[in-house]
Design a protein around this nucleic acid. Structure first.
Length: 200
DNA sequence: GAGCTGATTGTCT
DNA sequence: GACAATCAGCTCG
């Protein structure tokens, strides 16, 4: 069953990032179903987070999606190559989002393998935000789409993790964000092979 | 309009 | 471990 709209309206984006661990993310692009459960996320805490694109409530054509109500996708291009998927949360006007950094694939492995041009399936197939985007067929055409749609959605299939199996750590690649780079806004499942950086 | 930078990854040494 | 790939947004002029 799809997560209800209310799940995404929580104004505590850090809480949402943590509770997304173990949730199943699916895409159905060009009629091809792919998905798996989320094992790594990062929270971006709206206008007061120097690591966020919307820091200082900066409103541009790119960031306007972040200001929408929770439950839509924010997809953007990084380094000119990688399409990254975020889950927009909280109420309209609060640019909160959760970056999906890694999933444990369960459905459509052959499709993902083809999209990634991999001769053999390796854990890197969905490890890291750029890899997740590519494997799931995410493109900027999905920017602003609802997580209640039939192209992109998240399900709760009853998978949960105990506190000791979830790790909170500083985010990746945000050194420019000064003191905000140290915040423990990255969450991952301890020991899962799809987590993008070494488990500690 | 030029110049720089980034929520990264794959490849080559 | 270094670095190229490649483009949108931001800052200045």
């Amino acid at each position: 069953m799809k997560l209800p709209e209310s799940f995404y309206l929580n104004s505590n984006v850090v809480e949402v990032a943590k509770s997304l661990l173990g949730k199943y993310l699916f895409t159905c692009i060009d009629g091809l179903l792919t998905g798996g459960y989320i094992v790594e996320t990062e929270a971006y805490n709206g206008g007061i987070d120097k690591a966020s694109h919307a820091y200082g409530n900066r409103l541009t054509s790119r960031t306007q999606t972040l200001f929408q109500h929770g439950g839509v996708a924010y997809v953007y291009l990084c380094y000119g190559i990688h399409e990254m998927l975020n889950v927009v949360t909280s109420v309209e006007g609060q640019p909160h989002a959760v970056l999906i950094r890694a999933i444990n694939p369960t459905v459509g492995l052959d499709v993902m393998q083809h999209r990634r041009n991999m001769a053999v399936v390796k854990p890197t197939i969905t490890s890291g935000p750029g890899s997740v985007g590519k494997a799931l067929g995410i493109s900027r055409k999905l920017n602003g789409i609802s997580f209640q749609s039939d192209q992109l959605w998240i399900e709760d299939q009853g998978l949960t993790y105990a506190e000791e199996n979830m790790v909170a750590a500083p985010r990746i690649g945000v050194a420019y964000a000064a003191e905000d780079a140290l915040l423990p806004y990255r969450f991952y499942v301890k020991g899962n092979i799809y987590v993008s950086k070494p488990n500690r």
